[in-house]
């Protein structure tokens, strides 16, 4: 078995798949911290359908589907923040509206597209085993940009994640950090369409963050735990896919779900909360009370 694995690793497509798994794991996991803490799970689906709509439009216009998908994904990401702020809508509602609009555009485009739709649909399914050198390079650049963003702006990110309004009120460039984060989300999702695809990426930009949420109260460790669990899921998923001859994307997502389930069951935070709730229920403490007269001056 080990010999087979070593031999497989000598093939350039497999080497690219391993590197892509690491990059996909790191980028999606870092992103998942924001997605989970800002409660924006719909952002992955909205972005991947923006990429699908862009790819279909590109095919209709005779342009490169991947480049058009990437461009529309970035455009969508860049417009979510200003749209939500100007229209005074919650970001999740803006995402819901954009998502339905983009899926409408994608389906309309596919309806009128005379040629094969496989190229556009590839962006939804992805394949880490057939990732090209150029796609790998784009993914590496996007992952590096996200890493830099986290390292250079960690304290601003912490303030924004804690409370956007308070961050803005206390002089933190909250809007710049938030908008930059949304644009990076678009870039990460579109760069990973070739690896795990637009559907399965939804799991990878939620589950590593959700796993870390079960395990730590420290934001620095939160990023590290999320990155470790996401990258681990990608590499282990690739191995499972190779050994069992399963589709790679599905294997990665199933491994990520297993890691999350284990973290959830063993979560020290959840167990401590359960103990505290049990303690309170047993104390018989009654709170409250009213008065109809009080001192004022």
């Amino acid at each position: 078995m080990v010999e087979r694995l070593v031999e497989a690793l000598s093939y350039p497509p497999i080497q690219r798949a391993v590197v892509a798994s690491c990059l996909c794991g790191v980028s999606c996991s870092l992103l998942s911290v924001f997605v989970v803490l800002l409660r924006l799970p719909l952002i992955g689906v909205a972005m991947s359908h923006a990429a699908l709509a862009g790819a279909v439009l590109g095919m209709l216009l005779g342009l490169d589907p991947f480049a058009c998908g990437f461009a529309l994904c970035l455009l969508t990401a860049a417009s979510i923040g200003p749209l939500a702020d100007r229209a005074d809508l919650a970001p999740e509602n803006t995402l819901g509206i954009l998502f339905s609009f983009l899926i409408g555009i994608a389906f309309l485009g596919m309806g009128v597209l005379a040629r094969s739709k496989a190229e556009a649909l590839n962006l939804i399914w992805g394949s880490i085993l057939t990732v090209s050198r150029a796609e790998l390079l784009i993914l590496a650049v996007v992952t590096a940009a996200l890493l830099l963003f986290v390292l250079l702006l960690f304290k601003e990110i912490q303030a924004v994640l804690f409370n956007r309004r308070l961050a803005a009120a206390s002089g933190v460039p909250e809007r710049a950090v938030y908008y930059l984060l949304l644009i990076l989300t678009g870039a990460v999702v579109s760069a990973n369409l070739a690896t795990v695809g637009g559907l399965l990426i939804f799991a990878l930009i939620v589950q590593p963050g959700a796993t870390a949420y079960q395990l730590t109260y420290d934001l620095r460790r939160f990023f590290v735990v999320a990155a470790a669990s996401g990258t681990g899921a990608c590499l282990l998923g690739l191995l499972v896919s190779y050994v069992l001859d399963w589709p790679s994307g599905a294997s990665i997502v199933l491994v990520a779900t297993t890691i999350f389930t284990a973290a959830f069951i063993l979560s020290p935070k959840r167990l401590a909360r359960g103990k505290r709730a049990g303690g309170r229920a047993g104390s018989g403490k009654v709170e409250g009370g009213t008065a109809n007269g009080s001192r004022i001056a």
Partner: peptide, 26 residues
């Protein structure tokens, strides 16, 4: 200040965020 009990920020870090705007970016 509504915040989830499991949210990863401790009281001292929350207090520190008050000076982040004054300290400046980078």
């Amino acid at each position: 200040l509504e915040i989830d009990p499991a949210f990863p920020i401790r009281a001292l870090e929350a207090v520190m965020t008050g000076c982040y705007g004054r300290v400046g970016a980078f």
